[in-house]
Amino acid sequence: MDGFAARMKSYDEILNEVYAILTPYVHNDLTLDEGTELVADIGLDSLQVMQILLEVEDRFDISIPLNIIPDIRTVKDFVLQLEHLTRQS
């Protein structure tokens, strides 16, 4: 996917793509929603977080600064940051 296409994505489109990326990491009955916490609910470890960041970076053609990771707790936090970064790129 090229950067131009990524820049055109809406919040909902990004949200759906994030759901698709996260789904393989969900190993219980959890249903993903915007309030789902990446570590507390899905149980992601640090290596999985880094793997997901790489997948998202490739899909949206962006670089995610490590600085913003402490601000990402929920799916919604993640999508908002991606929306911001794709607009910047």
């Binding site: 950067g3 880094m50 053609d61 670089s63 490590l66």
Partner: peptide, 21 residues
């Protein structure tokens, strides 16, 4: 500073990230 990782020893990934900057 803004901190960005690139894939280990992956020169094309490094260049891609430089282009984005």
């Amino acid at each position: 500073a803004e901190i960005i990782r690139f894939r280990h020893n992956n020169v094309s990934d490094l260049e891609k990230r430089l282009r984005r900057l």
